[in-house]
Every structure is written in structure tokens, then in C-alpha cells.
Write a protein that binds this DNA or RNA. Structure first.
Lengths: 255, 255
DNA sequence: ACTCTAACTTTGTCGGACAAAGGGACGGAA
DNA sequence: TTCCGTCCCTTTGTCCGACAAAGTTAGAGT
């Protein structure tokens, strides 16, 4: 028969984990706000009553999670986790899970269409200015695949931003980090790829400005189908994403 | 004038970071496969030629990133990052960014509909069996809000799994981790909420089995609109997600 | 008030140490 | 021979103390 619950389960966890959890709690529940200083390692040693090595292990955990970081003088402070850094963790995981380009393509078809729909509904003048600026820069580098691919990635980040939906912004980022690097390969291999890409961006901006949902969705679909056609000229959609693409994500994380 | 590029930039990073990067590279590019042992801390001390404290800090970074973990005997081995753990990082970030329930709702409307469409197209018999099993368990706890909310969360994970699209699975998880805990509050406060939820699940399984895309989309929309109506009885959609919901995510992470 | 320097702090790394827990080997019992 | 218990070794988590490099602060001098 079950004994009466005289004792609560004891929280048994390594000290460094408890340190990390304690600091995380204070940040997540808002008692420590982003930007607030955390104190020196020595402070934490005194407060938690554990050794500095233990504190440092706890700090590493939080740092990797993006909850705290070190400023120019290496002092600790809480901070807002950055989407691109978090997303690169996810990209890495997707690579390890050996997802296929088909999965990437189909998920992106959903996520990018939703982004554009959001942008059509909610884009501000500032968003449109950013997008237009991006378009101008894209046109200038249409013959340079690496630079154009980078512009393309930025363009879609800006579209997602224009949707004013941060959940969507975050949800699309991991796939995008793996998806858009291939753009470089495609516009390198397919001559008309660059101009088509830039033209599609132009139509998309236009649709967003005119708040024309139909057109936005249509051009997003076309844009992605272009990608697909280009990609299928160089590889099968059922190939899994390989580690080479991670180099982009890693570079983005450090940036 | 620019000097000729005689020297490459020196990679200046803390030793623990280099240790983490080196191990990460081996895992991501496949030379160390998930499940492979990493060796003891002492081994790594010898291989990298740095102090054990330094090795340990590097290990914490990788552990937090989900790339390595310790088995029952605390030995290190590479592993496939788990979606729920990664997603809880993202949920945490969303809370810190103070996203609103409206953002969560609108993003989920997209993500869950896409999941169901994928499930309608690709669900296997095994997927259907899992879903049906979940339904049976849900019916058994329809009067218990906490247990029902848990079943609901699991149901939608299973639907995403049935889509066979791991990118989508991962993309929807962060929003879901914040979204579904509210279910408990809703079915507690709204008497007919529980039965309606279970009924919707039943219709969804039916649609997936019949490969009826229209019905799948319809019932997903209804299901989410039910959530919305229920939620608006207890709070505004424009309220931001608060830290209390993180407790669920934290519990899920440790599980 | 401004600048330059010297003293102090903080971080990153190192070396060694020890208790607790687990794994493995060895020997004895069934 | 196979099973089981004990002893030893390894590994991890934690602690202590130390030091160089880089940054910060305070104070002296102009």
C-alpha cells in the first residue's frame, strides 16, 4: 500500500546546475531584467557559497543558453537571447537528424507564406524601407552569388520581421538558416537565377506595400518553386542536409 | 593603403570555447556519431593538453547545447539533440521577449494546420495507432484538467510526428510549449471545454485516417478557435506570455 | 579639469586534492 | 561452471590556492 507522503522528493542536482537554475529563474521571472549586471564570479561565490569553478560551470550553461553574456569588459549581465543564435542550435540539430531538403522545402513553404501574409497585414513604413533598401543592395550584387545569397537570407528575415509576429520569426529561422545557403549554389549554377530572385523580391515588396495578400502568397510560392527547380538541377530533394551547410550557421552564430 | 595579406587573423578564443568547438565539429560532421563515447575528462585533458577545469567548462557548453550527454554512469557520449529540450530554450526566449498570446495563436494557426495537412498526407498506421491510443487516454481523463492538458499537448506532438516532417515538428514545438499549458486553465474554467477538445481530437484522427485534407484543416481551425474563445474568457489575447508558463517548459526539459 | 600612472579587480587557466559513486576484477559459494 | 559479494580502481563533482593578462579605479601631478 502507498505510504503517506511524509517526505517531499529531495532536489538532488549538481551544484553548478542549481546555480544555473537559480540565476535562470531570476532572469525568466523578471527580477533580473535584460541588461542588468549579474555581479562578478567572486560575488556569486559568496552568494551561493560554492567554489568559483562550480560558479563558472553554471555560468557556461547560461551563457550557452543565451540568457547571460559578457560585455566588452567581460562582466556578466543578463540579456535577451538572440534569435539567430538560438536558431543555429536548431539548425545544427536538424543536420544531425539528417532532415531532407524536401522537409526543409515543405516547411519553408508554410513558414514563408505565413510570414508574407503577416507582412501584408502588418508591415510598417519602416519595414518597407528596410525591404526596399535590401532590394537596392541585392540589385547591386546580382552577379555575385555569395553576396546575393546573403541579401536573400536577410530579405526573408526582414519579411518575417514585418509580420510583427516574433513567434513566426523564430519558427522560420532554423529552416531558413539551412535553406538559404543553398541559394548561393543555385544562382552560381543557374544563369537566370539571380535576376529572377531579385525580381521576385521586388514583386513581394510591391504586394506587401499594396496589402495584396493574394499577390504576396503567389510570389512567395513562385519564389520557392524557383528555388526548388534550381535545386533539383544540382541535387535531389530527398538528399539530407549535410554538415557543409552548418558552416554558414556557425558563422552566423558567432557574428 | 591596404597591406598585402601576409597574415591570417589569429583565432583568439578562450580555451574552453576551442575545446567545445573542436568536439562540436567532430560530432556535426559525423566523425563522432550519436551514441559514440567521447572519453573521460582525463582523456580529453591529455588530448587537448589543457586543465580539467577548462575541459569541464567546454563540456558544459556542449551539454547545454544537447550535443553530448552523460549516460546512467555519467560517462560522456554524443547524442541527437532532443526537440523538446531545444524547444524549451526557445520557449524561454519567447517569454523573455514578451510575445503576446495573439502572436502565439496566429503562429500556431499556421503551424498546426500545416502539421495536420502533413499528417493527412503522410500518416502511417503506427501514427494512427498512437493517436488513437492518446484519444482513449484523453477520454479517460476528460474531467481532470491537468491530465487532459498533458494529453492535448501530446496529441499535437503526435500529429506533427505523423506529418513525417521533422522541420515542422521542431518549428511548432516552442510555440506549443507555451500554448498548450493554457489549456489546463481553460478546461478548468469552461465546463464544456474538455468534451469539445476530445471531440475535436476524434474528428482530427478521423480526417487523417480518411486522408481528408479539408476536414483536417477545418477541425484544426475549430479546435484552435475553441482555444481562443476559452482563453478570451479568462484573459486578453494581447497579454504577453508570463513566466508562470515557463514552469511547464522547464519541467518538460528535465524530463 | 585633464592626463598619466600605479594599485587593485576580475577573468581565464593551471595544479593538486578529496569524497562519493560506479565499474571491474578477483575469489569464494552453490 | 555459474553466480555473488567484496575490494580496488576510475571517474566525477567539488574544493582550494595560485598566477598572468587585461581591465578598472584611484590618486598624483600638471
Amino acid at each position: 500500500m502507498p505510504v503517506s507522503p511524509l517526505f517531499r522528493p529531495i532536489d538532488v542536482a549538481p551544484a553548478y546546475q542549481k546555480v544555473a537554475d537559480a540565476i535562470e529563474r531570476e532572469i525568466v521571472n523578471g527580477r533580473i531584467k535584460p541588461g542588468d549586471p549579474i555581479g562578478t564570479e567572486h560575488d556569486l561565490v559568496r552568494q551561493f557559497g560554492v567554489n568559483r569553478s562550480t560558479i563558472r560551470e553554471g555560468i557556461r550553461v547560461l551563457e550557452e543558453g543565451g540568457l547571460i553574456s559578457r560585455d566588452s569588459s567581460r562582466r556578466l549581465h543578463a540579456c535577451l537571447p538572440r534569435y539567430s543564435k538560438l536558431a543555429s542550435r536548431l539548425s545544427r540539430a536538424l543536420v544531425l537528424h539528417e532532415v531532407t531538403f524536401r522537409e526543409l522545402y515543405e516547411a519553408s513553404m508554410t513558414l514563408e507564406v505565413a510570414s508574407v501574409e503577416g507582412a501584408v497585414k502588418s508591415a510598417t513604413e519602416e519595414n518597407l524601407a528596410e525591404l526596399t533598401d535590401n532590394l537596392v543592395r541585392s540589385e547591386a550584387v546580382v552577379g555575385n552569388p555569395a553576396a546575393l545569397a546573403e541579401c536573400d537570407a536577410e530579405f526573408h528575415v526582414l519579411v518575417a520581421k514585418a509580420s510583427q509576429n516574433r513567434v513566426l520569426q523564430l519558427a522560420r529561422e532554423p529552416a531558413a538558416q539551412l535553406f538559404y545557403p543553398t541559394t548561393e549554389m543555385i544562382v552560381t549554377g543557374v544563369a537566370e537565377g539571380g535576376p529572377r530572385l531579385v525580381a521576385a523580391h521586388g514583386h513581394l515588396i510591391d504586394a506587401i506595400r499594396r496589402r495584396d495578400r493574394e499577390a504576396g502568397v503567389l510570389w512567395t510560392r513562385r519564389h520557392l518553386q524557383d528555388w526548388r527547380r534550381g535545386f533539383e538541377k544540382i541535387a535531389s530533394l530527398d538528399r539530407s542536409v549535410e554538415h557543409v551547410y552548418m558552416e554558414h550557421a556557425q558563422a552566423a552564430r558567432r557574428r
